[in-house]
C-alpha cells in the first residue's frame, strides 16, 4: 500500500470481487464495474468474539456491528437491515457510477461498509465510534435506518450502497463485499469497492493506528478469521446523533 493512490491499484476486478458482483448480475440487475476495487482482497470468515463462526441467523436485526477489513486497523460496519437491499447504482468520489451489489444472506439484508467517513475520514475506534447505524429516527439528522457520522453529521443510506442522504459528505462509504455460504450460514468478507481512502486514512491516523494495532501490523491485510462484534461492545462511546 503506497501513500498516494496508485493508479495501478485501480485494476480490473479480480476473481473474488467479480464473483461478488456477479450475484447482482445473476439477479437480473445491470452491473457497472467500479473504477476502484481493492486489488487481491483477502477472503476472511467473520467470527464471533469466542471464535465461533458468525452465522447470518445469529446477527440480530438492526445490528450495528464492527469488524476490521481489509486491514487490521480499518473498521467496517456490519448491519442487518429490515428489508432486502437490492443492488443499487451509486457514484464514487470522481463521479463515476458503479453498482453496489446489494445485501447478502437468506433475506438479502446483510450489508457492510467501511466505517471511515467519506467526508473527513472520522472512523470507529475503541475509544469512539463516530459512525453508527441506527434504526430509530435520528434526532439530529431526522433520518432513520441510516449510518451517521457524528463528527459533522454526514448521513448515508446502508440499503442503497451507502449513498449520501445528508451532510457534508459528497460520495458513499466504501462498500465491503460480503458472501454468504448457504450450506453453513457463514459470512465472509471478500472485497472492497467504491472510493479508495485508505492511503489518506493511514496518513491521517498513522500514530494512533500504530499504537492500537501494531507498528507495522496496522497496514497489513487481514486473513483467516476476523472477529465481528457489536459496536457498543467494541467502542467506549458509540455516538448517537
Amino acid at each position: 500500500m503506497t501513500e498516494k493512490t496508485d493508479r495501478r491499484q485501480f485494476i480490473r476486478l479480480c476473481g473474488r470481487t467479480a464473483a461478488a458482483m456477479a450475484v447482482a448480475r445473476a439477479a437480473g440487475h445491470r452491473v457497472i464495474a467500479p473504477a476502484f476495487a481493492l486489488e487481491n482482497p483477502p477472503r476472511v470468515r467473520l467470527v464471533k468474539a469466542d471464535g465461533s463462526p458468525l452465522k447470518a441467523k445469529d446477527l440480530p436485526l438492526h445490528a450495528n456491528w464492527i469488524f476490521h477489513y481489509p486491514y487490521h486497523s480499518s473498521p467496517a460496519l456490519l448491519i442487518k437491515l429490515d428489508d432486502p437491499a437490492p443492488p443499487t447504482e451509486v457514484e464514487d468520489k470522481d463521479g463515476k457510477a458503479y453498482t453496489w451489489p446489494g445485501g447478502v444472506g437468506p433475506d438479502k439484508n446483510i450489508v457492510a461498509y467501511a466505517a471511515i467517513c467519506a467526508h473527513a475520514l472520522s472512523y470507529d475506534s475503541k475509544e469512539t465510534a463516530f459512525l453508527n447505524y441506527r434504526r430509530e429516527r435520528n434526532q439530529m439528522t431526522g433520518h432513520g435506518r441510516v449510518i451517521t457520522c457524528c463528527a459533522h453529521a454526514s448521513v448515508y443510506d446502508p440499503a442503497a450502497g451507502a449513498k449520501v442522504l445528508a451532510g457534508p459528505a459528497k460520495f458513499p462509504l466504501a462498500a465491503v463485499l460480503l458472501e454468504h455460504r448457504a450450506e453453513t450460514d457463514e459470512l465472509f468478507a471478500v472485497g472492497l469497492i467504491g472510493s479508495e481512502l485508505y492511503g489518506e486514512f493511514f496518513k491521517a491516523y498513522r500514530k494512533e493506528l500504530r499504537k492500537a494495532f501494531g507498528r507495522s501490523r496496522y497496514k497489513k491485510m487481514v486473513e483467516g478469521d476476523v472477529v465481528a462484534m457489536p459496536v457498543k461492545e467494541y467502542s467506549e462511546d458509540a455516538i448517537k446523533c
Partner: peptide, 23 residues
C-alpha cells in the same frame, strides 16, 4: 462525553483536510 469527543474530532478531521490529507 460523546459530544465532547465529537467536538475534538470535528476539529481534528478538518485540520487534517486543510493541512495534510489529499482526500
Amino acid at each position: 462525553r460523546a459530544f465532547g469527543k465529537a467536538n475534538l474530532q470535528w476539529g481534528r478531521s478538518l485540520f487534517n483536510e486543510m493541512f495534510y490529507s489529499a482526500l
